[in-house]
């Protein structure tokens, strides 16, 4: 049997340990899909696979045990999934009956967000779908995740680009009864950005992460929601060489900025990627060009807004597997 494995991989299938059997990865931007698509995924697993579905760490589905000979049939059958992808993300895929057109740029994952979670500062599903709309289909290996608040339940700190929702809390001292629920909570659970002085709460903007917990704790709506903002962390990764948490890149930027930098990231990669390699991970490109080059190119033509903070330097840190310092 002759199979072009490069084409197979680009088509969101993979070479598995079982010869002639493959697995299909279904994209679920924002980790949200309707039950009709669930039914279709289940039908495909029953008909072409072995009646099993694996839930991936990026919130997609992987359907294992599909014979390589039946990929074309499967591609035709998943047409409704690609149609739905177009609809939710606004992508124009041109053809939707030949399976996924690319797999390098990974599914954009999201925490449950403000459709359900009281802590979330925005609709994460919608943002994930909008980002997917900008960056997919693309072969560059990029991982993006969006989190509703700085608690980062989606582990955006393990991504190339992680988006964390912020809100500017507004304080109306006339409504404050001085119960200190916000101050105590901020000290115990967040960064201690609030202080109680002269029976009034004072907020240190430098320390404030914009998590919005003070608003949730306030019984009188003395704290209310101001503008929505986002912070962006970059170049977190696992891997066998130098795993590390993402580092803060931007704070207090608007939604448009988030979308624009996702777009600019791809121009940056296109310009600097080492094409002698089969693929190069974006984190390694930044390691090579250095953060300032990345920063300047990704922020090109971006109107950051008055509130924005941009990291001057980044020390990515992490650890090297080959270092024996701890052993």
């Amino acid at each position: 049997m002759s199979v072009d494995t490069k084409k197979l991989v680009k088509n969101a299938y993979r070479v598995t340990k079982e010869r002639y059997l493959t697995a299909l990865r279904v994209r679920v931007p924002g980790g949200h899909l309707d039950t009709k698509q669930m039914t279709l995924i289940s039908r495909i697993a029953d008909r072409y696979g072995r009646g099993e579905v694996h839930i991936t760490t990026r919130q997609g589905f992987e359907i294992p045990g599909i014979p390589m000979s039946r990929m074309e049939e499967v591609n035709r059958e998943i047409t409704p999934l690609l149609d739905a992808l177009q609809k939710t993300t606004g992508i124009d895929l041109k053809v939707t009956f030949e399976g996924y057109p690319a797999a390098g740029t990974r599914n954009v994952s999201a925490c449950i967000g403000n459709r359900v979670c009281p802590f979330a500062n925005y609709d994460t599903t919608r943002l994930a779908q909008d980002i997917e709309g900008i960056i997919y289909p693309n072969d560059f290996h990029v991982k993006i995740a969006v989190s509703g608040c700085p608690n980062d339940c989606i582990k955006a700190h393990m991504q190339d680009v992680g988006i964390l929702g912020q809100v500017e809390p507004l304080y109306d001292s006339k409504r404050c009864i001085g119960c200190k629920a916000c101050v105590d909570n901020c000290r115990k659970r967040v960064t201690g950005a609030l202080k109680f002085h002269n029976f009034t709460v004072q907020r240190d903007h430098e320390k404030c992460t914009g998590c919005g917990e003070c608003i949730l704790k306030c019984p009188t709506a003395a704290w209310t929601r101001g503008e929505k903002y986002y912070s962006v962390v970059i170049m977190g990764r696992t891997g066998k060489k130098n795993p590390r948490l993402a580092a803060p890149f931007l704070r207090w930027v608007a939604r448009d900025v988030v979308l624009k930098i996702c777009e600019n990231l791809y121009s940056y990669i296109d310009k600097h990627i080492d094409r002698s390699l089969p693929k190069e991970h974006v984190g390694n490109i930044v390691d090579r060009t250095g953060y300032p080059v990345f920063r300047d190119e990704v922020l090109q033509n971006v109107d950051l807004g008055e509130r924005a903070m941009v990291a001057k330097h980044i020390n990515f840190g992490g650890y090297e597997y080959h270092s024996n310092a701890s052993f």
């Binding site: 979330a120 500062n121 925005y122 919005g212 709506a221």
Partner: peptide, 30 residues
């Protein structure tokens, strides 16, 4: 958008400038 949770509104008493601002079909939180 002044509800405790994001993208939610707060129904409450406040000074009104025009008749159209008044909400007749909901109970105020405060």
């Amino acid at each position: 958008d002044k509800g405790m949770y994001s993208d939610t509104d707060l129904i409450t008493y406040d000074k009104v400038e025009s008749f159209t601002e008044i909400v007749f079909d909901k109970k105020t939180f405060f």
